[in-house]
Design a protein around this nucleic acid. Structure first.
Lengths: 340, 340
DNA sequence: CATAATTTCGAAATCGTTTCCGCATTTTAT
DNA sequence: ATAAAATGCGGAAACGATTTCGAAATTATG
């Protein structure tokens, strides 16, 4: 219905063979400059646009990259996507985007949908629930170039981009210790996630190095329901053994902490200091301004896209090696961790 | 390379004709239950997945909807996208997503890319620079179902979703007046945008109704460069005729205002009250908590998707009428407009 | 039992490209 | 002057699905 003119019709109009027209449009060396010009002009005049599906069918590639993220309302993932899109657009690639909403079952369905070749490659960040990764393995086994960022699946032998999670968490913990925090808590989403583990390891090591006794009650495992997270945090803050410093491993939990603090009599930063992994541009506008560990989101995205496109354009001269590439984060100190 | 088994191969394996297998997979009435079962089993066993491009080519539809937004790091657009995706996934549609970065030239390129039928339909919010809309007209003339949300192009006769921009701005202004503001300013992105006009009209009318003289210096036209916006706002705040109340027509400008205020000696809300159109979930965590006009973003997205899919599935029984559908916003009053 | 009606399936065309192969014609080399 | 190579283009197959048309095989009908 919404289809325009076809190559064959264009060829008929020009009294040329479809093969010739195709070659002319693709700037083939076998076609004279004169006919090329004629074809190009007529194509322009008749508003010819090649049917992408016919081409995809014939060439067995779609010029499309699928991006799968666990949530959209998250400045980190939004920035990654912008980075991916920037490079993709440069190379004429389109982006199919899927949000799993942190739901493993949804992730599995989406991944299975991509098994049919709709996308030439995949860039993704797994769900915090993704323990079983047979669906990812299937994709990889099928030969589909796949790359992970941030939330990686370590069992798939391909290239992964992360930030220096361990070091950042270590540094963040030390920062709190330097700010005179005596009892520091760590809020995280999920134990299974590699980044969670690394961040927690960084936290633990820093605590140990400072000679503080590790207290398991100071590690809070949160879920995806905002309200219940706030309640959990509130309970911890109201307990006699409450922490005086907190590191949250994701943006969302920092916001939940702000909400929880509002429900107590505690004041930040005097009673409680907070630092969080976050890429939110308005961290500096919060009350108090939030000290953040900012991940190189946009760069991670563009690097992912670059490697994928490199693999797609030179399939035989480049492989997505089984490696983890680390791009460091940056800590920005603001009021929420200020010493009075 | 990443391709699996084809229908023909599957048919050969089953010693059936491709046509029979196709019909069996599509649950056609002409095929006996016995063979259907056999086919389904073998398809499962051999991991058969229909090639989407062959199907698209044959059926002249792609089961894909393109979504074009002016920026991604914006909670409103993120929520709209989530709403669209929810409905799209339900109906087996895929989403191609494009970010124009508020750049009209980029918008034109993307729209032209979609002229070839890669997507069955389009949902979009135009750039704040989009004055010439010949590229959009071309799409619509080609018969591609297109729907606008929030930033609409009024010259294209199709369905558009907006919020009650006029009333919300009117109400917001009255709220500031009630809070004792004497000199109220309105910050906006662009004059051409229909929503900007409506919001400004609401603002103007409320000012007039209150018997306040309209002061053109109280309308600030901002751009997309964060820093220069902050400077502009800062200058206004430092002027002797500075406003004591501000309405910003987009989230981004509210954040810029916070930054500008930080560079002055003014205190919110005592010296200056602020209300903004915004869907940010952390408005309540800002310093001071931001009074917001929250748009029904997710609902707008899902409604867009519903109508588009209705049009795509019943092309002859439903048309995207030339109408503007309004879904009201909600005002949430917080500290930034509190009277001491 | 013969004929009609109904199931069930196969052959081939089709969607719009790209590309392999072939064939003139012209240019270059020997 | 003749062979060899290069140039410019057309014909037809191929990609992988769906669908029209028609033909068997089976069942029903009189």
């Amino acid at each position: 219905m919404a289809s325009g003119i076809s190559l064959k019709e264009l060829a008929a109009e020009l009294k040329l063979a479809p093969s010739t027209v195709s070659r002319a449009l693709n700037d083939s060396y076998e076609i004279s400059e004169a006919t090329k010009k004629k074809v190009l002009n007529m194509a322009e005049k008749l508003n010819y646009h090649a049917n992408p599906f016919a081409r995809s069918l014939r060439e067995n590639k779609s010029k499309t990259i699928a991006v799968i993220i666990p949530e959209r309302i998250n400045s980190f993932f939004a920035q990654v996507m912008d980075g991916i899109e920037e490079i993709a657009q440069e190379h004429g690639y389109h982006l199919l985007v899927y949000n799993t909403h942190e739901d493993m079952e949804r992730e599995r369905k989406i991944v299975n949908l991509l098994l049919n070749g709709r996308a030439d490659a995949i860039a993704m960040s797994v769900t915090s629930q993704t323990s079983d990764n047979s669906h990812l393995k299937k994709l990889h086994d099928r030969g589909l170039p796949i790359i992970f960022f941030d939330r990686i699946s370590s069992e798939i032998p391909t290239t992964k981009f992360i930030t220096n999670d361990y070091e950042s968490a270590f540094e963040a913990t030390q920062h709190l210790i330097n700010q005179n925090c005596k009892k520091i808590a760590f809020f995280t989403l999920c134990v299974d996630l590699s980044i969670s583990k690394e961040r927690q390891r960084g936290f633990n090591d820093a605590i140990n190095k400072a000679g503080i006794a590790l207290d398991s009650s100071m590690t809070l495992y949160c879920g995806h329901d905002e309200e219940s997270n706030v309640e959990k945090i509130q309970n911890l803050l109201n307990s006699p053994d409450r922490p005086d410093g907190i590191i949250t491993s994701v943006e969302k939990l920092a916001f939940a902490t702000y909400h929880a603090v509002k429900r107590t009599n505690l004041k930040m930063p005097s009673d409680l200091k907070l630092i969080s992994f976050s890429n939110s541009s308005i961290a500096g506008l919060m009350n108090p301004a939030l000290t953040t560990i900012t991940q190189p989101a946009s760069l991670m995205g563009s690097e992912c896209a670059k490697l994928l496109i490199k693999k797609l354009t030179k399939p035989n001269h480049y492989d997505l090696l089984d490696q983890v590439i680390t791009i460091p984060s940056k800590i920005t100190i603001r009021e929420s961790t200020c010493q009075d």
